[in-house]
Design a protein around this nucleic acid. Sequence first.
DNA 1: ATGGTCGCCATGCGA
Length: 260
Amino acid sequence: MKLATWNVNSLNVRLQQVLDWLAANPVDVLCIQELKLTDDKFPEAAFKEAGYHAVWAGQKTYNGVAIVSRMPGTSMVRNIPGYEDPQQRVLALTFPSPEGDVRVVCAYCPNGQSLDSDKYVYKLAWYEAMHKWLAEEIKQYPRLAVLGDYNIAPADEDVHNPEKWEGQVLVSEPERAALRALLDLGLTDSFRLFEQPEKSFSWWDYRQFAFRRNAGLRIDHVLLSAPLVKRCVACVIDKEPRRNEQPSDHAPVVATLEFA
DNA sequence: ATGGTCGCCATGCGA
């Protein structure tokens, strides 16, 4: 079972790239962030034609998430239950596996903008709500996978230039603590289960030839609960789509699970 | 020190 996450930065612009990527990388589940389109504009037919089911939570201009999958999922949840938020950032679905249900959460975590911004306050409050909800989810679903754009680089090794970035948004200690709190629920950053190339990143700014210089951050993650960690045999960042014409600023991250 | 690129949509704003 292959699970992937990709912030596409507008599905309108990136639809063909997503379809091409799925054709070359036939994953079972793809979590998409930053649709930047309303529900009525979601290209369901294109995914259906490619052999994928889809659920989505869209919004005008900003945010928006979708889960695209080979098999239809069940028990869909849209938004963090009990957390009032007009911003569409969360979708959850359950998929069958040989060992029982796998719960997949697709998350587009807030960016935060800067440490002195209201959006930073919102980011930390959002993470707290996420923490509270995931504490319940993992109880209900022992096989839990939380994929998405976390907008947090967990450690300095996930930052191309830690000295320059120190204390900035996306790497600040309160943000890292918020991410660690999710891990403390019993989730693992699957990327670090395996030996990885040095300077592995999942996002590169569009400016200043950041991708060419590999001036990036690793902010897109696949978190797995313990029963799924046992079945995880790989987690890779696919930099290939970042080389496309008109690329997303993020690369997909793919985790491979092998059930007994 | 400042702004640099995208995508939204038509202007600045968010990332």
